[in-house]
Design a protein around this nucleic acid. Structure first.
Lengths: 211, 211
DNA sequence: TTCAATTCCAACGCTTTAGTTGGACATCGT
DNA sequence: ACGATGTCCAACTAAAGCGTTGGAATTGAA
């Protein structure tokens, strides 16, 4: 194992070991590996090698592989919630609201992949009670917006929330299908903005109040 | 390894080896294992054990693990295409058309899982040229229906096809999310028909001609 | 009956992986 | 200075997985 540059510098400076930085780098490397290869395809040795840190630190800091995956996913979900809290407009602009979720996934494609791997694993979701409570609050907001005429009330609010999330995430969930159907892999920025416009428009068709 | 009952019977009867049946059982077992655990989580030994047939037959008949996965996925895609060809209504009933795709996934939940695993694997899709051609034909039909006023032409036809597929498949793609958002796991048949109705309605909102 | 081809399988080799261990090195309070 | 504590890592163990092999059983044909 090659000692990492940053670590060498710290030792040269005679500073205390920056364990928080070590943890952060391991978590970052784990996120990249899990995103790319999934829980089963990822090896602890590769994570450690990517971080430039010994494998044993992974076990010492995060327990086993399963708990490391949970830690990574939980952190990514918090980042999404934080970003949406800061950027998402109100439900009166439901198209842009959904477009904002689309944007987050476009800039952080790892989250959808982590969520899909979690869903494929069957069994209970990571941190399920807290996440359920969070979604229930969102559903309650949608229900209120429907009562106030801000959103169309044709669809059950929970199902509307679920479908809008899908609308924003679907492009990133099955890239091979999007490539085969549209003929583009979505890395083109023109195509990406067309996809976004399509998501915004579809969200409006689904949820905007109808006369 | 325990010799299988069916195999014993054949030997007792003194019949020739039923190699087609052996292949079929291996493919079936492989489909179940890949669906449940994904390419990386599945072991060749488990597939063989589930089929009650020796592992070596897998390699002899299907090559390696990758090619076996491809064979399984290709067959499942053919089953979907066959079923839709027989059951799906015309595009003038776009809601039911999408509901029909939903029904197929509800009865064959393995296909979505196989497709998601394929998508997560990155790299080219299995049998990509033929599948691309198939989707392009579907897109062409949608485009014609738009020109004829049978479908709304607000959305690009390829993107409309892609979104409708997502609408039908999303419930099965992220069951943990559907559980957290709606509070039901979807095994309840009442809830399932509500989800179907919601998909049908959403498809109409997205694609039915507007005045 | 005997022979070549085919189907089957138990057991093996080799690699990879999850998780552990024992000890070296750094830090800090006393 | 020095021991207690915490940080780090090379090397290890035990198990599991992929793909192979050598040979046994079965068949149909000569």
């Amino acid at each position: 194992m090659i000692p990492t540059e940053a670590l060498e510098i710290q030792i040269e400076w005679g500073m205390a070991w920056d364990t928080q930085e070590t943890r952060r780098r391991l978590r970052q490397a784990a996120c990249e590996e899990f995103t790319a290869h999934g829980p089963d395809g990822t090896t602890m040795a590769r994570i450690a090698a990517r971080a430039g840190i010994n494998k044993e630190r992974l076990y010492n800091y995060f327990g086993d592989k399963r708990r490391l995956f949970e830690a990574v996913l939980t952190e990514e979900l918090e980042k999404l919630a934080t970003s949406l809290g800061a950027n998402a407009p109100g439900l009166e602009h439901i198209g842009e609201y959904t477009g904002c979720i689309f944007d987050y996934h476009a800039e952080n494609p790892q989250l959808v992949r982590l969520l899909l791997w979690e869903g494929l694993s069957q069994g209970p979701a990571v941190n399920e009670p807290a996440r359920t409570a969070h979604y229930q609050r969102t559903v309650a907001k949608f229900a209120e917006a429907q009562r106030n005429g801000i959103l169309d009330d044709d669809l059950d609010p929970a199902k509307l929330v679920f479908l809008l999330i899908g609308l924003a995430a679907w492009w990133f969930a099955v890239p091979q299908l999007s490539r085969m159907v549209t003929g583009s892999d979505g890395s083109n920025s023109k195509e990406r903005s067309r996809r976004r416009a399509c998501v915004v428009s579809a969200a409006q068709h689904l949820a905007s109040p109808r006369p």
